Amino acid sequence: MKNLNILRFILILSITTYSLSAQIKVVCIGNSITEGWHGNPSYVPTLQKLLGTDYIVENNGKSGATLLKKGNKPYYMQDAFSRALKSNADIITIMLGTNDTKSQNWDNYKSEFKSDYESLIDTLQSTNKNAKIFLVIPVPVCKDNYGIRNDILNLEIPIINEIADEKGLSVIDANTPLLSSCNYFNDGVHPNDLGAKAIAKMIYQNISK
């Protein structure tokens, strides 16, 4: 009986280990819109619920992060980036650029936005060789706040689309569908519950195809 119980335990452990290893790993890269900020929810938990147990979704957002390497808080310098590099992800979503619209960032280093974005992608691909990468167009800025400017965000969008086209990557447009949904952003920048659910749904519909 004792040996039988041991065998059962080993079998259950093996099944559990296999189930975990068989899960599709999704790594979400971004700023406070991804991480969540001051009571404003992250979309990542909702994305996990939508994808279900066949997936494991990791939140690698960092509040205030910029895509620009010379920005005031480069994503490249954050622990979240280190985790993403080591994640062995199957799918990576990148939604950065919102904080880059601040004057101290864009006005000084806008010419480096494309090359820094390409560098981020290349670095992620160097350690996550089998990952499918999705570039997420940042959500609209319904009200300029915290130095974040929607007119500059609109300048970033064609650059992101150009990078995706040149690298053969998929784009998830989280901007256009929310242009008329400013009630989804209490402070004009960060999504509330409705906004987080809408973002999660858009990402889910694209990565689960």
Results as ranks from 00 to 15, higher is better:
N105K: 11
P45D: 07
L67P: 05
W106M: 10
E112G: 14
L120Y: 05
P74I: 06
F81H: 14
I94Y: 00
D54S: 15
E58I: 09
K69P: 05
K110L: 06
Y76V: 07
S63P: 06
M77H: 14
S87H: 12
T93M: 01
G36A: 14
G64T: 10
T101D: 02
Q78V: 05
E58L: 14
L96E: 13
A80F: 01
K70R: 15
S87P: 08
T101E: 00
A89Q: 05
I91N: 14
T66W: 00
N88S: 14
E35M: 14
V44L: 08
N105V: 02
P45A: 04
T53C: 06
Y76H: 07
T101R: 00
N99E: 06
A84G: 05
D116W: 01
K70G: 03
R83Y: 08
S111P: 13
D116A: 02
T98N: 14
S42G: 10
I56L: 09
T101K: 02
K62N: 12
L85Y: 11
T53D: 12
G39N: 08
F81V: 13
S103P: 03
N40S: 10
T53N: 11
L67W: 04
L96N: 05
T98C: 06
L47G: 04
S42L: 05
A80I: 01
E118R: 13
N72P: 09
L85E: 11
S119I: 03
G39K: 04
A84Y: 01
P41L: 00
G61C: 07
I91R: 09
Q104N: 15
S103I: 11
D90Y: 02
S115V: 01
D107R: 04
I121M: 12
V44P: 04
T101N: 00
E118N: 11
L120H: 05
G97H: 01
A80R: 12
D116K: 02
A80Y: 02
P41I: 00
T66F: 03
G64V: 00
G71S: 12
I92H: 10
P45W: 00
E112A: 09
T53H: 10
K70S: 09
L68A: 05
L50Y: 03
L120K: 03
M95T: 10
K62Y: 14
G61K: 08
S119A: 15
V44C: 08
Y109P: 12
L47M: 04
E35S: 15
M95G: 12
A80S: 13
A84E: 11
G61S: 12
T101Q: 01
L85H: 07
G71K: 02
G52V: 07
R83G: 13
K114A: 11
G64E: 02
I94T: 11
G61T: 08
T46N: 08
G71F: 00
H38W: 09
N108Q: 12
Q78I: 09
K86P: 09
K86F: 12
Y109H: 03
N72E: 13
Q48V: 03
D116P: 08
R83Q: 15
M77R: 14
S119G: 13
S103W: 02
T101I: 04
L120A: 03
